[in-house]
């Protein structure tokens, strides 16, 4: 377990930086940015633990989104209606953008002339696309289910 700690801390640190960076892009105030960073760190830590336990990316992302959404919901008094947005910012580093790009580049490759091993290229592209769809679905569901069940206020 202890040998995994540096990797876990690495993922949490860069999850926090990515969430805070996107928090600035989304125009979160400076007081809310540390919460975005904390949510990002938590989400990536949970996802990393899940993947270390040999869960799929989709399963680990779902667990991470649920834990992040529930944790942020417990801070409703401090964050107010912004808690859903903070949870979303925290889960942004888990959005599988690179897989999305790989999937589309793979589909573009399939149409290239003189393609070698078209089947493998196509299967890789389809795998990446399915991974994107399922992971996005897992993140969205993981964020929404606690917010609905705990009746987080939008206003």
């Amino acid at each position: 377990m202890f040998e995994l700690l540096p990797h876990l801390l690495h993922q949490a640190l860069f999850g926090a930086l990515a969430a805070a960076g996107f928090g600035v892009l989304f125009n979160f105030g400076f007081r809310a940015l540390p919460w975005c960073a904390a949510a990002g760190a938590l989400a990536l830590a949970v996802r990393t633990v899940g993947q270390d336990l040999a869960w799929s990316l989709e399963g680990a992302s779902f667990a991470a989104a649920i834990v992040t959404s529930c944790s942020v919901s417990m801070l409703r008094k401090q964050l107010g209606p912004a808690c859903n947005a903070v949870a979303l910012a925290g889960c942004i580093p888990m959005v599988p953008g690179a897989f999305f790009g790989q999937a589309l580049l793979g589909f573009l490759s399939v149409t290239a002339p003189n393609l070698v091993d078209a089947e493998a290229t196509l299967i890789l592209a389809v795998q990446s696309l399915l991974r994107v769809i399922f992971t996005l679905g897992a993140i969205g569901a993981g964020l929404l289910i606690p917010a609905h069940l705990l009746r987080n206020q939008d206003f």
Partner: peptide
């Protein structure tokens, strides 16, 4: 510029995660 640097850090962090 603040947004640009923040996004640069976010992309680089994404890179480390990848």
């Amino acid at each position: 510029w603040v947004v640009a640097v923040a996004v640069g850090i976010a992309c680089a962090s994404f890179g480390r995660l990848l």
